[in-house]
Each structure stands twice: as structure tokens, then as C-alpha cells.
Design a protein around this nucleic acid. Structure first.
Lengths: 202, 202
DNA sequence: CCTACCGATCGGTAGG
DNA sequence: CCTACCGATCGGTAGG
């Protein structure tokens, strides 16, 4: 018999999503130390121990949050590829827009992804690192394709990919929704810099 | 009377530098959790309690490390300005080289600077944030100057500065010394992308 | 700079 | 999903 004061467990999937959202919110606004399992539970409105009904450990929770970030951008790129409607320029802009938009939709996840990746246990960290490498490879492929099409001139596609990822992946550090720029506008501007550079063409 | 087994305290300045270096090393190679005061002390070869002879708290130590990063790049830029030998292009390249080089000379400090800034107590965090803002302002000034000189075409100097800082400030995430590129080479390449863009000029 | 020690917190578990 | 609880660790202090 369950304690009468205990709520009925919610369906695992929706509760898990709710917990991840709460953790993301805490990471976005507060320092990491404050995103304890206790704080996350309070934010959800359940007891800390109940979190362990949905996640076997804090590492599993953090790992899930990171995967929830990288998977959608991989999938978005792949479906664009299979649609075949975009050329290398269009694909590049779309990727950059995806990346910067994460800052708008999942700012806390983004921060966790960048700043806590190394803290995960080997197994799950490896899985996420693999997806990150895969995405970087996709970006390099788009650059190579642009070179093949004659529209890009890229001396070092790998370094160029790192520049793009660094530019787009650090927006979470300063972007605040409701400011003067939306995420797609920032992506568009970064794309513009990347395309034409800032040197005056005389 | 001191315990006979106790070493004599080293001069505060050199010991403090040694402690900061040890903390940087730990941050570079290990996850943050492992960079405890205990681990830092072991790495230095003293007892944890002895750290508190040199730093009043862990926050003071982390704050010092962050300031030790931002101050040199501010000073380097200012002395270049007062020398007056460089134009806006030269100044920009020099700033980017400074930033990327931190990854080589202080990789652990760089990681702490980016990933643990929010965890510091208000007072010291504010001081460092101020210096960061100041440096960003200096970068915007260089861009503005290039526009005035007619050599740069920049629609939004602030956003451009964020792109540059994001690009250069995230190299610590992937750069490993002894690879195929040195830090100045990476800075040079990033500068090249920034100047001319990747779009083939037909 | 050391020995000895502490309060607080944190992730996690037992058992229902 | 809750109550009750624990072991480990961590930053930090007292006192020399």
C-alpha cells in the first residue's frame, strides 16, 4: 500500500521531460552548485528521492539533457539533406540557425552541454562525444561540398568548422531572449560575416 | 614553536603562483569535481589547510586565476595602443593572437574563466565581469576604428565582437599543444576567415 | 606550514 | 512517489 500522501507517479516520459526542463531552468539562471538534485526536485514539486524513480543517477539526467541537444540538430540536418532542396550555402545557414536557436529554446541544456560534458562518466560521455564528432563531420562535409560547387573557398575545413561551432556554440553565454536580436537574426549575421568577411572590398 | 616536521612557508608570491598553476593543471586534465582543495594541495605537495595560509578561500583562488587571464590581454592591448605602431588590422590580429594563445599558456585558467565564472561570489565576479566588458569594448573600438579608416565594413560591431570572442575563446575546448597547428597559426587562420570570408569571390 | 577536526551538503538507498 | 536515512566529500577553522 502506498502512503496516502504520496502522489501517483506521472507517466515516465512526461515526468522525465518535466524534470529535464526544471534542471535546464536551474542551470540557465543559477550557478551549477545550486542545481542539486534537491533543488531540481523542489522545482518540479516532488521529493528528491522521487527523482530516482525516473533517473537512476544525476549523471543519467545530465547525459540525457546533452543528448536531447545534439540529436535534434543532427536529425534536422539529415532531413534537410534527404529533402535535397538546399545547396551548400543554404545548408550552412540552416545549421548555424539550428545551433544558435538552441540558445533560445534550451539555454540551460546548452550550458550543461558545453560546461559539464567532461564531468560525465566515460560511457555516456563517449556516446555524446561521438554524436558531436558526427555533427562536426557533417559541417565539414557541407564546407567541402561548397568548395566542390565552387561557392566556398576554404583552406582548412576542419579549422573553419571549429570557428563556426565556437561562434555559434558560445552564444548562450551572452544571449538573452527579448533583447534586440532573435536567435535566427544572430545566426543570419554570423553567417554573413562568415561568408563575406569584414574587410572592405575595394 | 612550529611543528618540526612542518616545512617553512615559501614566499607568498611564488607559492601562490605555484598553487594557481597546480589548480590550472588539474582543471585542464581532469573534471572539475577532482579539482578540490585537497587535490590541489596534493599536487603542490602541501596539506590542504596550508592552502588557506595563501588564499582565504577557494573562491579567492579561482577569482585570482580568472583575473590572471584577463589582465594580461588588456595590458598587452593597451601597450600596443600606446606604441601606436599598428593599424586596426594589426591590432585585431594581435588581439586574436593573444586570446588564442591563452589556450596554449593557460588552458586550465581559460576553462575556469569560461565555465566557472558564474560560480564566484558577487564581489569578485563583478570585478572580473567589468574587465571582460572593458576588453570587449576595446575590441569594438578596434572594429570602429577600422570602419573609420575604411578598411573594415561592419554592420554590427557588437555582434561582430561576440563572434570573434566566441571563436577565439572556445579554442580551449579542442586545442591540444603539439598538434598540427600552433596557437598563433590558429589565430592567423581565424583572422583570415574573419577578414575575407569563405564565399568564393567571383 | 601542519595536525586534528567539524558542519553542511550532496548523491544516493532502503523500504514501503 | 514518499519518509527516513547514510556514507562520503568538501570547504573551511582552531590552534600551534
Amino acid at each position: 500500500m502506498a502512503d496516502e500522501r504520496a502522489q501517483a507517479p506521472l507517466p515516465a516520459n512526461s515526468r522525465r521531460a518535466q524534470i529535464m526542463k526544471a534542471a535546464g531552468d536551474l542551470f540557465e539562471r543559477r550557478a551549477y552548485q545550486e542545481a542539486s538534485m534537491e533543488a531540481i526536485a523542489q522545482h518540479v514539486g516532488i521529493r528528491k528521492a522521487s527523482l530516482y524513480y525516473y533517473f537512476s543517477s544525476k549523471d543519467e539526467l545530465l547525459g540525457q539533457m546533452q543528448q536531447e541537444m545534439i540529436e535534434p540538430v543532427i536529425n534536422a540536418h539529415q532531413s534537410r539533406l534527404s529533402e535535397g532542396a538546399l545547396d551548400s550555402r543554404g545548408l550552412l545557414l540552416a545549421m548555424m540557425t539550428d545551433l544558435v536557436s538552441l540558445t533560445e529554446t534550451h539555454p540551460g541544456h546548452m550550458r550543461i552541454y558545453v560546461e559539464r560534458h567532461r564531468e560525465l562518466p566515460e560511457l555516456i560521455r563517449g556516446k555524446i562525444a561521438e554524436q558531436t564528432d558526427r555533427y562536426r563531420g557533417m559541417l565539414v562535409d557541407v564546407l567541402d561540398r561548397g568548395v566542390a560547387e565552387g561557392v566556398f573557398t576554404v583552406a582548412d575545413p576542419n579549422l573553419t568548422a571549429m570557428a563556426i561551432l565556437g561562434m555559434c556554440g558560445s552564444t548562450y553565454q551572452w544571449y538573452r531572449p527579448g533583447g534586440k536580436c532573435t536567435a535566427p537574426e544572430i545566426a543570419q549575421y554570423f553567417y554573413h560575416i562568415l561568408m563575406t568577411g569584414i574587410e572592405t572590398s575595394s
